[in-house]
Design a protein around this nucleic acid. Structure first.
Lengths: 335, 335
DNA sequence: CCTGCTTTCTACAACGTTGTAGGCAACGTT
DNA sequence: AACGTTGCCTACAACGTTGTAGAAAGCAGG
């Protein structure tokens, strides 16, 4: 029941190409011809076949955003901003959830890009620079730290400086036994490593020792992992008076574990997170965090992609940095 | 730098169609021919052009999931399940965030379906049955209550029964002044109306009066709306001893507002939500809720879509119901 | 009336893929 | 030796769209 240019052309008594010209806003069409064609278009409820158009033109007007997990609120919030930023350029954004594994990400990066979409904004966890090098074709913008200096455009925030700043905030409260939750040794843990570096730098600068026992790993960065890590710290006897969690969901899990252990936040233990997700503004207590400018990240990513699409595809890759802000809330109020 | 069947064919010394046959697993290809072709494919890093394939075959292997907002965790969690269920059938899922407005939803429903994808799983808020009737073409499965008995397949949960059950749970705790947060008078508020109906039915059956002053509207169902509605209830002097929030994010906002007002949950006010999002399992206190079987919802939706794609596109629309479970947690522990 | 330009429209080919029809060997059966 | 069958492969057309080339008609200027 779907109609083609041919059907519209027959109804309007013109050639297929003239209908195409009307659809695409070509100027040299007589007003009455245009009117006849438009009548036929709406009578038949004609809409162009994007696959055919894409095949012919090489453009769909659709880009994809690939993220590891949508139920990590940071990515969901980021997705909203990307959708909005892209809408301003008339693009539709489709979102692909990769799961974060290297193989899945490789499938997305190569599979999805097979001419269905014009470009890809990609937040990879496990993908290597080598994987990326094998991707000829679709323009791509990467978000986040992983794949340093690969062949693609890149939007980052300064994880080391941000982690250092929030750790210094904890130190400034007079806390001395500051734990960290979220370290990862896997290749996926690039952000974790950078945040750990910033944390260590802050401790060092303040003359506080770096104590391996205060570092709790977390296989993933979900609430459950944060709660488990916090419980581990509490039972291991290291008695932290503050915790820097490498993202907000970890921190929310840690808050829960502290509550269950009967400890008060921030009185007994101050808690800080990273990402500024909405939950942290309504949790009890509200959560001190690093707020990356997600809107800016999204806007920069979309702009980079637009430049790549319109400009020279082999221009050197650019790396842009987005701002962040330390946002103190109840979980680190002074005692 | 992208290669076509033709390039592979030339390198392997066979016809274009033979390469196509190898790619598609056609059986009658001599082993040595197949090997030559496969060598050429990997040497050139060939991957098929999906637009062209789609144009020819009418299938892409890609379906879309359209939801109002990804940063409502319920939709994010649902998205994960849909992605997983579709993966079992070899489908890729792209997610489209509509924003929930009628016009935007109409654009998605008609625009996205323009041959880029094979089918659509759609969770609409504002779309009317009339809008849907105008969509010839792409098979579609609807999630949620809106668009009752429209022309499309449908997966629902029994909102009335679930709302009634959780309200009865609050009544069973001995609460008598049970407020409701989340009512909506707009056409988008179909779920709100059903949940309000279930709430009222439970009160009625228990011989408790329905008090308009205990019903707090919420323009959207975000945490901020829940907090504002709760504050409104607290300052209006109706003194509720329990609140049923029409989703979990509203409830988390309400928890926050109760905390700020110095009230204890559940001792002073019991709180219940709806959706069973992950946050509610880690909040302080943890949140009593209705847990819809999201995995089942996703599986049913994907199955309906698969049937629609393989079977008769004009078969009568089916409506399937997914189960839910009342999940009591700390926020309604007996005093 | 011819020339050249502009406006309006059309025919055709091409984008990369796959279904259809058919050709050519090789084989087994009569 | 002729025949049908099977296995393997190829040529061609078609999916719906748009770029290119150019035709037809109208107009201005000589």
């Amino acid at each position: 029941m779907r109609h083609r240019l041919k059907d519209v052309a027959e109804r309007a008594g013109v050639s297929v190409k003239t209908v195409s010209n009307v659809v695409n806003g070509y100027v040299h069409v007589r007003p009455d011809t245009r009117a006849r064609v438009e009548e036929a278009i709406s009578a038949l409820n004609y809409r162009p076949n994007l696959s055919a158009r894409n095949l012919r033109k090489g453009r769909t007007g659709v880009i994809a955003l690939a993220v590891p997990e949508l139920d990590i609120p940071y990515f969901a919030e980021l997705a909203r901003h990307v959708v909005n930023a892209a809408a301003e350029l008339g693009w539709t954004v489709l979102i692909d959830q990769t799961g974060g594994g290297r193989e899945q990400e490789r499938v997305v990066a190569s599979g999805i890009t097979d001419h269905l979409i014009d470009g890809l904004i990609f937040s990879p966890l496990a993908l290597t620079a080598e994987d990326l090098a094998n991707l000829d074709g679709t323009p791509m913008v990467l978000l986040g730290e992983r794949v340093d200096h690969g062949p693609a455009d890149h939007v980052v925030i300064d994880n080391v400086a941000a982690a250092r700043e929030i750790t210094e905030h904890l130190i400034g409260l007079g806390r001395r036994r500051i734990a960290a939750i979220g370290s990862q040794r896997t290749p996926e843990g690039a952000s974790a490593r950078l945040r750990l570096t910033g944390y260590a730098a802050a401790l060092e600068a303040a003359g506080l020792g770096y104590d391996e026992a205060l570092i709790a790993p977390a296989p993933a960065w979900h609430r459950a992992d944060g709660a488990a890590a916090m419980r581990h710290l509490l039972t291991s006897g290291v008695r932290p008076d503050a915790v820097f969690c490498f993202n907000d969901t970890l921190a929310l899990g840690a808050l829960r574990a502290l509550h269950e252990a009967g400890l008060r936040v921030p009185d007994d233990v101050a808690v800080a997170g990273f990402d500024d997700i909405e939950d942290g503004r309504f949790s009890v207590p509200t959560l001190t965090t690093i707020a990356p400018d997600k809107e800016q990240i999204a806007r920069l990513a979309v702009e980079l992609l637009a430049n790549r699409l319109d400009g020279d595809p082999s221009a050197p890759a650019r790396e842009l940095s987005a701002p962040y802000r330390l946002t103190p809330r109840e979980s680190t109020h002074p005692r």
